[in-house]
Simulated assay, not measured.
Amino acid sequence: MNLMKHLSESIEEYLETIYRLIESGRTASTTEISRTMNIAPASVTQMLKKLDSEGYVKYSPYRGAVLTERGYRVARRMTRKHRILERFLHDILRIKREKIHRQACEMEHSLSDDAERALCHLLNVPGECPDKNPIPACDFKFSTCEECLEMKDADIEEIGCRDEKLRSLREMDEEETGRVSFIRGDYRVVRRLMDMGITIGVPLKVIKKAPLNGPVEVEVRSSRVALGRDIADNVFIDTEEE
Score class of each variant (00 low, 15 high):
Ser10Leu: 15
Ile11Ser: 09
Glu16Lys: 15
Ile18Thr: 03
Gly25Tyr: 05
Gly25Pro: 01
Ser29Ala: 02
Ser29Pro: 06
Glu32Lys: 09
Glu32Thr: 10
Ala40Ser: 15
Ala40Thr: 15
Ser43Met: 12
Val44Ile: 05
Gln46Trp: 13
Gln46Asn: 14
Asp52Thr: 12
Glu54Ile: 10
Tyr59Phe: 03
Tyr62Leu: 13
Arg63Glu: 14
Gly64Pro: 03
Gly64Gln: 07
Leu67Lys: 02
Thr68Pro: 03
Arg76Met: 14
Ile84Pro: 03
Leu89Asn: 02
Asp91Leu: 01
Asp91Gly: 08
Leu93Gln: 06
Leu93Ala: 05
Ile95Glu: 03
Ile95Gln: 07
Lys96His: 06
Lys99Val: 08
Glu108Ile: 07
His109Met: 09
Ser110His: 13
Leu111Ser: 00
Asp113Arg: 02
Ala118Asn: 13
Val125Thr: 15
Pro126Lys: 02
Asp131His: 15
Ala137Val: 14
Cys138Ala: 12
Phe142Trp: 02
Ser143Tyr: 10
Thr144Phe: 00
Cys145Leu: 01
Leu149Asp: 13
Leu149His: 13
Met151Gln: 15
Lys152Cys: 11
Asp153Pro: 10
Asp153Asn: 13
Asp155Val: 11
Ile156Leu: 08
Ile159Phe: 05
Ser168Trp: 06
Arg170Gly: 07
Arg179Gly: 09
Arg188Phe: 09
Arg188Lys: 09
Val190Leu: 10
Arg192Cys: 11
Leu193Tyr: 00
Thr199Asp: 08
Ile200Phe: 06
Leu204Ser: 02
Ile207Gln: 03
Lys208Asp: 08
Ala210Tyr: 11
Ser223Cys: 13
Arg224Val: 12
Val225Asn: 10
Ala226Ile: 11
Gly228Glu: 08
Asn234Pro: 11
